[in-house]
Amino acid sequence: MELRQFEVVVAIADEGGFTAAARRLHVVQSAVSSTVRALERELGTPLFDRTTHRVRLTAAGEAFIPAARAALRAAEHARGTVDAVRGRLRGQLTVGVMQGVWAGLHHALAALRAEHPGVTIRLRQAAVSDIRQALRDGSVDVAVVALDRQQQRGLVTRTLLSEDMVLVAAPGREFAGAEVTFAEAGELPFVDFAPGWAIRDAVDRAFRAAIVERSSTFEVNDIGAAGDLVRHDLGVCIMPESIAARFPDLRTWRFARHAPNWKVMVVRPRGEVSPTVAALLQHIR
């Protein structure tokens, strides 16, 4: 077996098909197909179930993928170690991010690219639960995300910022006091982020702890869409204060007690750090 075969199989699993994998690897689809057929002959079993509409991993394929990722990571680490001795890095770095959350990451990426132009950076934007799984299976090397205590298990984390969340409302909406309570907020229509978003998880936990129910009138997966809905007074939204600051025309209200907390951190799997990941971590503050 060859590393190229591992790379092809992993690309198909990640992209969901042979054509998409060929685009990612910059080869023709026939080359991808022939590589998989050769590997399957060598292993004596199919790795993919192929139909007209989709490609799925077989049980053997599911078992093969983690080992293939580990082999590719080991090869990349060996290559990176030699490159580091020579004073230059190359290869691919996959960084996971949550939508709307940067925490200054673009500054770190720019600094890494300036120092090591041979490194290709691939950003993967997804819900926090998906990024956490990707860190575990090796398809993401490092991530900037918000995780609760339980989600941090088995990962190495470093906190970048911690802040309370605020209630964001249309300019004309008023409350009885200078701060809002969960009981007051629970009576209003809500613009919520989709399940699986870290913001949504934190807000759900806060309302459960306050023993208050609320109604999700809208569920969105875009920060800008949430702002537009609130701007037209179709609902209120709870978000981190740093994100709420992107909407200066909207009003923000602090919670009287036990505001949902937002903790963004840089996260990586346990174990030895590759030279490329180490280089990026030096720039993330």
Results as ranks from 00 to 15, higher is better:
148 D>C: 02
138 G>R: 08
167 L>E: 12
201 D>V: 02
132 R>A: 12
120 T>P: 00
172 G>C: 03
207 F>P: 02
205 R>S: 00
155 L>A: 01
195 P>C: 05
192 D>E: 13
136 R>S: 07
115 E>S: 14
184 E>H: 11
184 E>L: 14
131 I>P: 03
130 D>Y: 09
183 A>T: 13
105 L>M: 10
114 A>T: 14
122 R>H: 07
134 A>M: 12
212 V>Q: 04
193 F>T: 09
169 A>D: 01
106 H>V: 15
187 E>K: 01
204 D>H: 12
195 P>E: 00
161 L>K: 14
197 W>R: 04
145 V>H: 04
133 Q>H: 11
193 F>R: 10
196 G>A: 06
124 R>E: 04
203 V>C: 03
147 L>H: 05
137 D>T: 07
173 R>G: 09
172 G>P: 05
115 E>P: 10
211 I>P: 09
122 R>G: 03
148 D>M: 01
147 L>I: 01
119 V>A: 05
115 E>F: 05
140 V>W: 11
116 H>E: 11
168 V>S: 10
126 A>W: 13
170 A>P: 13
178 A>D: 15
167 L>Q: 07
169 A>P: 00
133 Q>V: 14
111 A>T: 11
188 L>V: 12
163 E>L: 00
122 R>M: 10
166 V>F: 01
171 P>S: 01
112 L>A: 08
169 A>M: 04
200 R>E: 15
154 G>W: 07
118 G>Y: 11
188 L>D: 07
146 A>K: 00
194 A>F: 01
165 M>Q: 14
166 V>L: 11
137 D>N: 10
110 A>Q: 12
143 A>L: 04
170 A>S: 10
116 H>Q: 12
107 H>M: 01
175 F>W: 13
190 F>W: 13
119 V>I: 14
132 R>W: 07
209 A>V: 01
207 F>L: 02
116 H>C: 10
118 G>E: 11
171 P>M: 08
160 L>I: 09
109 L>S: 11
170 A>W: 08
105 L>I: 15
112 L>W: 09
